[in-house]
Design a protein around this nucleic acid. Structure first.
Lengths: 201, 201
DNA sequence: CATTGTGTTCTCCTTTGTGGAGAGTTTAGA
DNA sequence: TCTAAACTCTCCACAAAGGAGAACACAATG
């Protein structure tokens, strides 16, 4: 299987695409929205998210299929409305690795000219799977590290954290240092933001 | 209208309640989950969120009503399943203030013995409205302040931020100081985390 | 025109956080 | 069991962030 990137995605989905990576409880860690602006506007204004059969399929299934094959009814006629915005044929990809955080990623890709071939669907599937894997949060942070990080996020100073935890300030510093390395963060602030986004704290 | 607090909520919803405050794109700023643990477990395992008629009503409406009056069909029989967990009668409240961020809050309250009276519904409605208002994010942060805050979150140092923005380090400090005051944060880290949670950056 | 408020810049000083080097203690595997 | 890796803690030097006060520019307001 060849390795594809954003440029290939662009040519595989000339009418637009949407990718949500690492959806935890409800929100993605990263979102790529390359859908037509007028469609996004219409979709948002009408709060279609909860009624979109593609989203509902993606949340409850794993795999890849064409929009035309989605086995969920569409009371608001969202798919046929999308067609009037150029999103005529599409493919949906849903990836889920059953990890502790239960994170899921999905992508929706569209073109106007013809339906997707099996090969193309496989390419898109591989792409979303790869992006999903790349965004995997580190799982090797210790409880001590996450605990300190959470307290930093909540505005506590190292001295205060040390007192609350009953350890020295140096120990807290080391825990945060480790956390920063594991998260690939440059500062404590970034480490806290990342851990928060990953749902670790 | 009397002002009610958590204790009154407890007695108004002896079978459990759930409140999600300030849902932006999809996730709440604060979540209070006082529903029976076995029901939460069952609900989560079956990914009922997208099919729950109460959630779907709350996302698409504003106001208050009894579960029995919800005008959305329930293909997965979630409401009748809830009854077997003691959530027999319930009220749903949805609050939306049409602000820039488009944030919405909702609550779901349950009891086993009898349905809710109009007075009780009004009390619950007032409570959710008040909590919603209390959680309103500050809207008075300037673009300069948010810009600096976003860069801090992304792991940049003040010196680096100052260089990138073409201002002095002192100016950056001042912007962050203002941001901290407006957000009620003790440290820059907390300010960044809060702004991120509020969807400001 | 004066006033008020906001944003920018500066200085001086204190407190806090960061980075490096190292050592004792568990834990997991060969 | 021995070893390596991971975890925890300590100490120090230095860089960065935080806090207070004051001056200046500018726009909106009265």
């Amino acid at each position: 299987m060849q390795r594809i990137g954003p440029a290939e995605i662009q040519s595989l989905a000339p009418a637009g695409h949407y990718i949500a990576l690492r959806i935890g409880f409800a929100f993605p860690v990263e979102e790529i929205n390359a859908l037509p602006l007028d469609w996004v506007d219409h979709y948002t204004k009408n709060r279609y998210m909860l009624f979109d059969p593609i989203i509902r399929w993606a949340y409850s299934s794993v795999g890849a299929l064409r929009w035309s094959e989605i086995p969920i009814d569409d009371p608001r006629k969202i798919i046929s409305q999308a067609q009037t915005f150029g999103l005529r044929y599409g493919a949906a990809i849903s990836v889920f690795d059953g990890n502790a955080a239960g994170q899921r990623s999905f992508g929706s890709f569209a073109r106007s000219d013809r339906d997707y071939s099996d090969l193309e669907i496989n390419l898109l599937h591989a792409y979303v799977k790869r992006r999903h894997a790349e965004m995997a949060p580190p799982t090797n942070l210790t409880m001590a590290e996450l605990e300190a990080l959470g307290m930093v996020r909540d505005g506590k100073r190292l001295k205060e954290i040390a007192f609350d935890l009953g350890v020295t300030e140096g120990a807290v510093k080391q825990r945060l240092k480790n956390a920063k390395i594991k998260l690939g963060a440059k500062t404590g602030t970034q480490a806290a933001a990342l851990a928060s986004q990953y749902g670790l704290i």
